[in-house]
Nucleic acid binder design. Structure first.
Lengths: 264, 264
DNA sequence: CGGCGCCTTGAGAGTAATCAACGATAGTGG
DNA sequence: CCACTATCGTTGATTACTCTCAAGGCGCCG
């Protein structure tokens, strides 16, 4: 409905391709490659079968054999592993616009789960639909490949974060990363973005206890670096925060001048 | 030379495709998909320009803009990040048979380095050669995609390892992973494989100090779980070790019945 | 033989975990 | 509208895992 209103409000010369889409997947991919109107329509088409889900709901279980992909449109989901001890480790966040491919077909059974952290709007995309989309829309295929490179790099960054940074540094790095990712999905402004996670969720992400997350957050606040209230995060001294976390956004953003085609 | 001997020893009906290759890349990919003789020849062809390199040598620097891929034939290399503090975190190992694509063309400058840990035999593959190989050999392309899924999963496993496991558990998990990876490259037998790393290298992998690596190793030895001497690792109680590390090899091995084509 | 790199060991410090309790907040039902 | 309850956030005290610093030993290579 608001989409139609804005169509009325803007000059009629604006085409669908130029019109900024409300779809976070479209917004994200448009930052990676240029998409045609047909590409955008196809992406919006595939996002139609969305379902609202509650918090803490599994989308894919550890032992499940399904090969569907998951697209998050709103909310916050994650890949995570539950240990026998009860400990949970979050391996990756799925923000609005993130498409989560599941490798179960090639590497045996799933060894981790995918689930929502907060109430979310997600689409389950049958593998065949995704295959068709990619076959018919080479721009989209290319954009998805680049997005995947970024996901891989993000995973490696998390290894570094967990492996050799202190609690304060880890949290600073995570917050800087989240801000950029929300910005790329068109969901952040003025150095602030949604952060609906609990401190326990952050702990399971950063490899810290919830108590220590709390104290680390207080330290960040005390230093006037961040503001975190009402499920919203604001970076007050972004440069400083980036220094603390040794954060370099190169792994999240496309190169200035895109290079060759991704090979595989 | 031993290759020619075995050719003599086996029935003449064995073709080049059936003859087990000495090339670790071929051996690895053959476990993922079936390759034709032409596929094998092409892979061996691309491995010809190998260079022997000393230990601790950078193959790709942090700020380098090269888009070549790196193939390790012998030795031990890694992706790593050097912090300003001097700390190093290893993000991934490159074992014989591992092909390391560098994403620099899509995501700005390299933000980490790739280098040898010990004397190694590596090939620098120009991007164009890799593109050609993949275009002409769909089986190889498919195998490389599957191998990449496995690398991604490995990265996520390392996140879990660093995020929520104790020193002993981490090390147990890493050793189990290494054993399987060497087995897939045809370089392990009887639960033992090469491990030419120093304790400092292990520390930079596991997020532990070299002192604590030493003590953790002693504990594993004391419990009769592993034997580590002369740059060779042997798992004495593999099942037990897998339990300690909660190790599930699913992420390293292909599914019993391969599924559809990888999508992108 | 000397030097260097690596492994080993001891002592002390520190970061973060655990345990426990209390306060704040929000959603629920009477 | 308010009490009730559950979840989440906060705080203090204690424990422990791991780090840092320091020194000595061992083996290897020039």
């Amino acid at each position: 409905m608001s989409a139609r209103l804005s169509l009325v409000a803007v000059p009629p010369s604006w085409t669908a391709a130029l019109e900024p889409s409300r779809n976070p997947l479209v917004r994200k991919l448009q930052r990676l490659v240029s998409l045609t109107a047909a590409d955008v329509t196809a992406l919006e088409q595939i996002s139609l079968q969305s379902r609202p889900l509650g918090p803490r709901l599994d989308l894919i279980r550890d032992d499940e054999g399904c090969g569907d992909a998951i697209l998050v449109l709103e909310g916050f989901a994650c890949r995570y592993k539950q240990r026998q001890t009860g400990q949970r480790q979050i391996m990756a966040y799925l923000l609005p616009g993130d498409l989560c491919e599941v490798d179960v077909r090639y590497l045996g059974r799933m060894d981790h789960a995918v689930g929502t952290l907060v109430p979310s709007l997600v689409v389950r995309i049958p593998r065949q639909n995704l295959t068709d989309l990619i076959a018919r829309h080479p721009n989209v295929a290319q954009a998805l490949r680049v997005a995947r490179l970024s996901e891989e790099a993000t995973s490696r960054e998390w290894v570094v974060n967990l492996g050799c940074r202190s609690a304060l540094e880890r949290m600073a790095h995570l917050f800087c990363e989240l801000m950029i990712r929300f910005e790329m999905a068109g969901l952040a402004e003025d150095d602030s973005c949604p952060l609906p996670l609990t401190q326990a969720d952050l702990g399971d992400t950063l490899g810290l206890s919830n108590v220590h997350v709390n104290r680390t957050l207080q330290e960040l606040r005390r230093q006037g670096l961040v503001e975190l209230k009402g499920k919203s995060l604001r970076l007050l001294k972004r440069k400083h925060l980036e220094e603390i976390g040794e954060f370099n956004p190169a792994y999240l953003r496309p190169a200035e001048s895109p290079g060759d085609q991704a090979v595989f």
